[in-house]
């Protein structure tokens, strides 16, 4: 289950909304490099979940929602990040929650808005608090080569975007997938 940046799907309303959580763990190696201690400069280690991987987690949340809408028949790829804002760091021991909502979808692709919330065990009374948002565009790859008059392209017949990993994730979250 490499390159999975969500741990569990907690809610799925087909063609509308998907909610997923990601537990930030100190066992994740990238946190050791982001950012390591620098004794020479007197800096202590400061492990922080990279914002780029939060974007990836949102893209996976939205991508599963868009892929699920057509039973994973389309090759759905993240085509564009329109806007991304995040207001605070996610540190080990916190839980991130991504809520993706389809704004618009057709044969060509979909636009998805995703909100990012954080549960901080240091402040459990706050619950999941909003810390950011992102606007994403997904393309149905085989249907989206004509918008600018471009020649079509052939892609592999198998669905290289939605492999078994995403389906396993949905199944292990309690959702039936063919």
């Amino acid at each position: 289950m490499r390159w999975m940046w969500i741990d569990r799907v907690t809610e799925l309303q087909p063609r509308h909304k998907l909610v997923a959580v990601k537990n930030v763990s100190l066992a994740e190696e990238h946190l050791h490099d982001h950012f390591p201690a620098e004794p020479a400069r007197g800096l202590l280690a400061s492990p922080v979940m990279p914002a780029s991987l939060i974007v990836e987690g949102c893209a996976q949340t939205g991508g599963i929602l868009v892929g699920h809408a057509e039973e994973f028949k389309h090759k759905v790829i993240l085509a564009k990040v329109n806007k991304f804002q995040i207001d605070r760091d996610a540190t080990p021991g916190c839980t991130l929650r991504y809520t993706a909502i389809i704004e618009r979808m057709d044969d060509m692709g979909a636009s998805v808005n995703c909100t990012i919330e954080l549960f901080d065990f240091a402040k459990p009374e706050a619950g999941f608090a909003a810390i950011g948002s992102i606007a994403l565009m997904f393309s149905h790859l085989d249907h989206n080569m004509g918008a600018a008059g471009q020649a079509g392209q052939d892609f592999p017949a198998h669905n290289f975007v939605f492999g078994d990993a995403f389906k396993t994730l949905l199944r292990s979250s309690g959702y039936a997938v063919q």
Partner: peptide, 16 residues
């Protein structure tokens, strides 16, 4: 500087 995916984005945003 529009690219192909931007055309789809523009369509969605014009609708909105």
């Amino acid at each position: 500087g529009a690219e192909s995916i931007d055309f789809l984005d523009i369509v969605f945003k014009l609708e909105q």
